[in-house]
């Protein structure tokens, strides 16, 4: 069966190198119907550059491993279809910008794992009967869809442009905290951590994270803003401030 796609080639410019030096290398890849950018990278690996470093696992947008910048936009390569690009122009593939490059398309995302360790774990209420209504877990389930592709961390200007990494946890971890704070049976309080250690105040809700989320989590509206509101309510409510001053409570 003659498919019009078979006739076409796509040109790729892929970053090859490490943190200190590297360049974009051009590769030509024959296009098949339904092909995604990750398929093209695999084609290059098999046929032209067997040592091309790239992370991937599921190839079905479930594991969040193959994040990269495709034509300057944070994307999962397994979800980026070639027929969404103008194949007369080169497709540029680079590693995520906000993390140190290891080699080629693989970068060092270990900082994220360090942030995660500091979040207070799920702490169930005492003597709960574990009954939860679906409507009460719906919004928690939205946050738990996160596949940790770190595209939101990569695009967030607090990290990308201002590199406030040690003081700022980033959208991925606000989503995680939201999932814990809004869990109907959780008893821990993470608001002071959010305000102080995680630097949620640096976020000025530009919604860049929400735009790139491959899981369509409403990061800003459903996670970050409600968390900010809780902090305002707890720490900046004038009545509560007076109360705290008088009774010396945190």
């Amino acid at each position: 069966m003659a498919s019009p796609y078979r006739m076409k080639n796509a040109k790729f410019k892929v970053y090859r190198g490490n943190a200190s030096e590297g360049q974009e290398v051009e590769y030509t890849v024959p296009v098949e119907e339904g092909m995604v950018v990750l398929d093209a990278i695999h084609y290059i690996q098999k046929n032209q550059a067997p040592d091309l470093a790239v992370r991937w696992n599921c190839k079905a947008a479930k594991c969040g491993s193959c994040s990269a910048e495709v034509n300057g936009k944070p994307k999962l390569m397994c979800k980026s279809r070639l027929d969404d690009f103008n194949l007369d122009e080169e497709i540029n593939v680079r590693p995520m910008k906000s993390f140190p490059i290891i080699k080629d398309l693989a970068c060092d995302v270990s900082w994220n794992y360090e942030v995660n360790k500091k979040i207070k774990p799920f702490t169930p209420k005492e003597n709960t009967n574990w009954i939860m209504k679906q409507r009460d877990v719906d919004r928690v389930q939205e946050f738990r869809k996160c596949i940790e592709c770190f595209a939101c961390q990569n695009v967030c200007h607090v990290i990308r442009d201002h590199d406030l990494k040690p003081k700022f946890a980033g959208p991925r971890f606000f989503v995680r905290v939201a999932g814990l704070e809004m869990h109907p049976l959780d008893a821990a309080d993470r608001l002071s951590d959010l305000k102080n250690d995680m630097g949620i105040g640096f976020c000025n809700i530009t919604k860049c994270c929400t735009e790139v989320c491959p899981e369509d989590i409403h990061i800003t509206d459903n996670a970050i803003i409600p968390l900010k509101e809780r902090i305002v309510d707890k720490y900046y409510d004038p009545f509560k401030m007076i109360f705290r001053k008088i009774f010396g409570m945190q």
Binding site: Q45, D51, A53
Partner: peptide, 14 residues
């Protein structure tokens, strides 16, 4: 046959 170095080299891993 392996091309490249031992640094993050999927061909070698394969």
């Amino acid at each position: 046959k392996i091309e490249g170095s031992r640094m993050y080299n999927p061909g070698w891993h394969m």
